[in-house]
């Protein structure tokens, strides 16, 4: 089973990285095994739960459904890059804590990044738009209402602040490339 390997170059949370991956390797596996970023979680491995959501060129994707080689030359944002440049929590992260929008925490990184992708393309989302944006992120603990409240509160705060977007997420913004 000699796997074909390739070197890919990508920008991870604002920093250029070069890694060697197997052709069949998922982006989720590469995150964990090559980049040592374990924030993205695997809840199903087949794109049904959203726990592995990351930002690829600013858009929310399921890292279990994307091959690592597809990330070549692109911008990757993970939960580890969500905090502000000074290391303090982003408004979104703060709001998740303030609203108790997490319990076991396993879906939380994916949930936060789906929310981040939403706020990047739509800084003032309606409640319905928030629900739509996280409809692909399953959570068994919170009952979603605190999550929706947290995202709505963070949107308001970020809009008031004049959109503080973390560097990882801001890179590649607006290019409109999908996965």
């Amino acid at each position: 089973m000699e796997a074909t390997r390739r070197t890919i170059r990508l920008v991870v949370n604002g920093k250029p990285r070069s890694i060697e991956v197997a052709a069949h390797e998922t982006l989720l596996a590469a995150l964990k095994e090559r980049l040592y970023l374990t924030g993205a979680k695997e809840g199903c491995g087949v794109g049904e739960c959203g726990a592995c959501t990351v930002l690829l060129d600013g858009r929310a994707v399921n890292a279990c459904l994307v091959l690592a080689v597809e990330a070549d030359g692109r911008e990757l944002g993970t939960i580890e890059g969500e905090a502000r440049p000074d290391g303090s929590l982003s408004a979104l992260q703060r709001a998740f804590i303030d609203h108790a929008a997490l319990q076991c925490g396993f879906c939380t990184p994916g949930m936060v990044l789906s929310a981040r992708a939403l706020l990047r393309r739509n800084p003032r989302p309606s409640r319905e738009e928030i629900v739509e944006a996280i409809a692909g992120n399953l959570c068994r603990c919170t009952g979603y209402e605190p999550v929706i409240d947290a995202i709505a509160a963070a949107a308001e705060e970020e809009a008031a602040e004049g959109s503080v977007v973390p560097p990882a997420a801001s890179a590649g913004a607006g290019e409109g490339r999908g996965p």
Binding site: A100, G105, T108
Partner: peptide, 19 residues
């Protein structure tokens, strides 16, 4: 009192066996 596990979980540094 806010959840004491909140920050580790929103930063993605709460480590599960999966990780």
């Amino acid at each position: 009192v806010p959840r004491i596990d909140g920050e580790a979980k929103v930063r993605g540094c709460a480590t599960y066996v999966h990780d």
